[in-house]
Amino acid sequence: MIEPGLRRIVESIMNPTSIANDVVLRAKDCDIYYGAYRAVRDVSVDIPQHKVTAFIGPSGCGKSTVLRCFNRLNDLIEVFHLKGKMTYHGQDLYAADVDPVEVRRRIGMVFQKPNPFPKTIYDNIAYGPRISNYQGDMDELVETSLRRAALWDEVKDKLQESGFSLSGGQQQRLCIARTIAVQPEVVLMDEPCSALDPISTLKVEELMKELIQDYTIIIVTHNMQQATRVADYTAFFNAEVVEGAGGKVGYLAEFDETQKIFSDPVQPETRDYVTGRFG
């Protein structure tokens, strides 16, 4: 198997029409531990800029865990630690002098369950800009963020109502608007549609295609159709039972262009998974 990054260089040389993508995030030989228990091993992946990268795989394979490492949200878990190197524009994310708060302002996150704050719709959006001392016109920023999240028309007359008054799908788009209001470079999405109905799911997927012009997106999904619909690249994670390790250990099985992963994967386990034989 050729190193994916290398493959793209080779491809860009061989095929001048293909655009060489800049790498925004890079994991190199990452192992993730909870205490002494190794949950994920040997993850090396390059996340290209202005693309949607999907993480797929059976449950318990560590794809959400890896995602949360990219903006250091796992720091909230006391026993968590990471071995290996994760870089953002070449900068080590886990260097001792890196401020996780700064990391999270550049790498935003949308969660599985919509989690608006118990505040008004307006204040939900304005929260992030306020904490990072945004100096510009807040009304304008709120409107732009809501428009980009395709929610403006639905909420423009009730900005002062609670975020909880919205439907589940609207709440999730509110959370996306809240995330992009901070103007991050990367948006991490942890199964953003798993709690939504099909119509809301479709809206969020369309939204992702819009956002990709300005943002880099990583999405964790259980839904393989979703990965084929939205993702440019797909990483397939798998898990294996290791004797004496105290549970399953997740690992990155294969990473490639989405089309390649679903039509002509290199690994037999990837083929089994995408054809629905397990997972």
């Binding site: 190193e3 990054g5 290398l6 260089i9 800049d22 790498v23 925004v24 890079r26 190199k28 953002y88 524009h89 070449g90 900068q91 994310l93 002098d97 890196v98 401020d99 708060v101 700064e102 990391v103 550049r106």
Partner: peptide, 24 residues
């Protein structure tokens, strides 16, 4: 691995902890 693969004008200093900042 090609280290300079992703060159851009990203300022890596901005991620660093600033102990003297009002926030810290």
């Amino acid at each position: 691995m090609l280290a300079n693969f992703s060159m851009d004008n990203f300022n890596s200093q901005s991620l660093k902890i600033n102990k003297a900042s009002r926030r810290s």
